[in-house]
């Protein structure tokens, strides 16, 4: 398991390839990359700043990975999340999961993103023509995370 919180950009393709580099038991790798858009809520967005809670952020991400590992037979998991200043088109987040079979890799990647969006302490502030604004949480993200609630 690897969790990285960093200011620098990353290469999602290289991260994805590295996931199965030295593990021939891996039969499926799923990767998700989230990018910064140049629009949101009907407005052009020129840039973004990602604030986080140093210390808690890493713990929260690690906890999500532990939960994913308890639910699916995962052989590797990696999360990278950017903080600081970002420009449109830049990658924000990478989640990669590796397993013997595809279903575990697909589902766990989806699960990790849903939990990351609702439980990891990051906050986005956008630069628009009308000034800076904090992105508000979405009910749809809460609903997506709710899908994974165990009975």
């Amino acid at each position: 398991m690897a969790v990285r919180v960093q200011e620098n950009a990353f290469d999602g393709g290289a991260e994805l390839n590295a996931l199965h580099a030295d593990h021939t038991g891996i039969g499926a790798v799923v990767g998700f990359v989230g990018y910064m858009r140049d629009f949101n809520d009907g407005q052009d967005v020129a840039g973004m700043f990602l604030e986080h809670y140093p210390g808690m952020t890493e713990k929260a991400l690690a906890k999500i990975v532990v939960e994913a590992e308890a639910r699916w037979p995962l052989l590797k998991v990696e999360i990278i999340h950017r903080v600081g200043a970002l420009r449109p088109g830049e990658p924000i987040v990478f989640v990669g999961t590796a397993s013997a079979h595809r279903q575990a890799a697909f589902e766990s990647c989806d699960f990790i993103m849903d939990y990351l969006k609702t439980r990891a302490p990051f906050w986005k502030r956008e630069d628009t023509a009308e000034g800076q604004r904090w992105v508000e949480g979405r009910a749809s993200d809460q609903q997506a995370a709710g899908r994974w609630r165990e009975p």
Partner: peptide
């Protein structure tokens, strides 16, 4: 302890 608005990462 910490207080914060709804998180918006990802």
């Amino acid at each position: 302890v910490a207080f914060f608005p709804t998180v918006t990462g990802g």
